[in-house]
Design a protein around this nucleic acid. Structure first.
Length: 656
RNA sequence: GCCGAUAUGGCUCAGUUGGUAGAGCAACGCAUUCGUAAUGCGUGGGUCACGAGUUCGAGUCUCGUUAUCGGCUCCA
């Protein structure tokens, strides 16, 4: 017989050979919620593996999302249990499982602080407790009892949480050993299968995310059922860090920051600029085919412009403050967005319904005062260039315009090989219960929201819908991607706006000769050149596609005797539009190959006596791929053909 | 902005309990003139982020400033 104790304390018996799945099916749904998976005697196993006598079952399957959640959630409790022993009087906040690992928010008494140097001690204590293999026991408690219980334990944050957020009848606690936590579960059955633990970092976190409340210490950690899995995780993390755009940006000399210029102000170096201009040209080419008209507007604007637009009232504190010119008593701001300028472009002459939609595009550089602690490489900066455009159209044209923008996004993502797993879309809708917060009529909102939903559906985009996330002026669609270590960054956004056209009193003459207010659609499909480049660097690990990469070909002479021929080849290639550099250092060919491999140049051509005599080059593909000998003309054509083929996809036209 | 950590030649990093800086790579020079992931020898290069303080003496200890990193908060 197999005797199994469950999280609620109950014990059941099963025949030998019963599988984890059969056990899960035999118990009540409420209990099964806690039966995430199973492991036997500390060894992980699949749910369908037979379980034999004397098995002490721990419910666990790590690969399963919910299994990870429970495993890491219990690990968070284990952390708290260890901390409680090590630091009497410690206060606990929240301690959930997260995407990779877990954290616990804590506050030591008397202003004491946990330091990174304490990690080893804490990890050891956690492992010591885990080895006791304590059962995790679930218990339902009434609200009054729960408050009394945690008040007695001195847990004021837990008490506050119960009092303010929890309802009587829905409160449960989980106990392992001497530690009891307020928690809704689920958990693994016992702590014994937690075999490898690593505390990863410590950070400040405000209680309830409120910057006005106490700041607690947030301890991050990760745990695994096997030491080997932890090692693999750490190796994976190291590998990911090698793709960090900040590291590669430095290695490839793409961009830099200077303390003297100022934090958050990126400087694009020659190679990075070269790449960015090519990227901009590609987007520009596509936009032209989609009927956008490009404009250029100043980097500053009168403060009144932003007062009119309403941005000053809403976001003034997040902008660089107005510059006062005492001579003429004027105030100017660095432009935090391009929309007001573009409204003025629309208003520059009377508009007819016949010329709508009017699509006004600009690679517009904007300046925003981001909090210093929030700056991050190229992904969060204080000066950046949006691939911005504002579309002025009739309400019935909104859906069509969304479809056209989605066509652009999908085309560009496919050019770079982004797939659905890497890109997430979110539709932000208004909260219909809180209509006061939003401007515009119910009908306008319904039309616009339905237009976004339908447009996504038509283009096969699986978008998450978030109610209450819309801007006060209209619904929007955002596009998110993850960086190397799983942080999410927003790239593109498409937003419907009923507000600005009214504030700027924009109008067009309709077919019935009445004046009507256009709808404005903001769109920046890739967000900013900075963020998009950062994502591209991490996505490609610096191995940019041939058409985009700064140096396409490295020419390696076998010895200095062939430097002249190498330069001749370079001249020819540059003439036919191929970007080639010569490595004329006095080094052996093996060394040159190695160095240029590390520099991530897609093609090398090696030239020596034979090639110089015959006018040929010995091609080598990056990564030790294809090798072949051909004339320099053939090689130039090959590169150009390959580039042309890659860029064919940019010759798209709107489908509707 | 808040919490914590970090700051040493162009890059990556050593530097023991405070005794006045070191390696590898890169750069430069010489030799070599080489056939697909590191040829050898040599040379130059650092106010140890910046500013105060403690001390006979500070890269090392203390305080402040700046920047960066990890989070929190924020993100038009």
């Amino acid at each position: 017989m197999v005797k199994i104790q469950f999280p609620d304390g109950s014990v059941r018996e099963y025949e030998n050979g019963v599988t984890g799945m059969q056990i899960a099916e035999s118990i009540s749904p409420a209990l099964a919620r806690n039966v995430v998976a199973c492991g036997v005697n500390g060894e992980t196993t699949e749910l369908n593996r037979p379980i034999n006598e004397d098995a002490k079952i721990a419910l666990y399957r790590f690969e399963d999302e919910e299994g990870k959640h429970a495993f890491w959630h219990t690990s968070a409790h284990l952390l708290a249990e260890a901390l409680q022993e090590l630091y009497p009087g410690i206060q606990f906040g929240f301690g959930p499982a997260i995407e990779s690992g877990f954290f616990y928010d804590v506050l030591l008494p008397n202003g004491e602080m946990i330091k990174e140097g304490d990690f080893k001690k804490i990890e050891d204590k956690m492992l010591e407790l885990a080895r006791k293999d304590e059962a995790v026991v679930r218990q339902e408690v009434g609200k009054a009892d729960a408050i009394a219980q945690f008040a007695a334990a001195g847990q004021t944050y837990k008490v506050e949480h119960i009092e303010q957020d929890l309802e009587d009848g829905s409160i449960t606690t989980y106990t392992q050993g001497a530690f009891t936590d307020l928690c809704k579960g689920p958990h693994i059955v016992s702590t014994g299968i937690i075999k490898a633990i690593k505390l990863t970092s410590i950070a400040g976190a405000f209680w309830r995310g409120d910057a006005k409340r106490e700041q607690m210490q947030r301890l991050y950690g990760i745990s695994f059922p096997k030491k080997k899995m932890l090692d693999e995780y750490l190796v994976m993390l190291e590998e990911a860090k090698k793709r960090d755009h900040r590291k590669i940006g430095k290695e490839m000399e793409l961009f830099m920051f200077s303390d003297r210029v100022g934090k958050g102000l990126p400087i694009w170096l020659p190679k990075g600029t070269d790449l960015r201009l090519r990227l901009t040209d590609m987007l520009r080419h596509i936009q032209k085919r989609f009927g956008y008209q490009e404009v250029i507007t100043p980097h500053i604007g009168s403060k009144n412009l932003y007062v009119t637009s309403g941005h000053y009232a809403h976001y003034g504190k997040d902008s660089f403050q107005p510059i006062h010119t005492p001579e003429e008593d004027e105030e100017y701001m660095l432009k935090p967005m391009n929309c007001p300028h573009h409204c003025e472009v629309f208003a520059s002459k009377p508009r007819s319904y016949r010329e709508l939609p009017f699509r006004c595009a600009e690679f517009g550089t904007v300046y925003r005062y981001e909090q210093s602690g929030e700056l991050h490489g190229l992904t969060r900066v204080r000066s950046f260039t949006q691939d911005d455009a504002h579309i002025f159209c009739r309400p019935d044209q909104v859906k069509g315009e969304f479809l056209r923008v989605l066509d652009i996004i999908q085309a560009v993502f496919s050019i770079f090989g982004f797939n659905e797993e890497q890109v997430e879309f979110q539709i932000s809708l208004r909260d219909p219960k809180d209509t006061e917060k939003y401007i515009g009529t119910d009908e306008m909102w319904a039309t616009a929201e339905q237009a976004i939903i339908d447009a996504c559906a038509e283009r096969g985009i699986n978008a998450r819908q978030e109610t209450g996330e819309a801007a006060f002026y209209g619904p929007k669609l955002d596009c998110m991607v993850k960086d190397v270590i799983g942080r999410r960054w927003q790239l593109g956004t498409i937003q419907v706006d009923y507000n600005l056209p009214m504030r700027f009193k924009l109008e067009y003459t309709a077919d019935d000769n009445t004046k009507k207010v256009p709808v404005m659609v903001h769109r920046a499909p890739f967000g900013s050149m900075e963020r998009f480049t950062a994502v591209l660097i991490e996505h490609t690990a610096g191995h940019f596609p041939l058409w985009l990469t700064p140096d396409q070909v490295a020419i390696l002479p076998i010895s200095e005797k062939y430097n002249d021929y190498a330069e001749k080849v370079q001249d020819y290639l540059n003439t036919v539009g191929v970007r080639a550099v010569v490595d004329n250092r006095n080094e052996k060919i093996g060394r040159k190959v190695r160095d240029n491999e590390i520099k991530r140049i897609p093609y090398m051509v090696i030239v020596g006596e034979k090639e110089a005599a015959e006018g040929t080059v010995a091609m080598r593909q990056q990564g030790g791929g294809e090798q072949a000998v051909m004339t320099m003309e053939e090689f130039g054509k090959r590169i150009n053909d390959e580039v042309a083929k890659m860029l064919e996809a940019t010759n798209i036209k709107p489908r509707d």
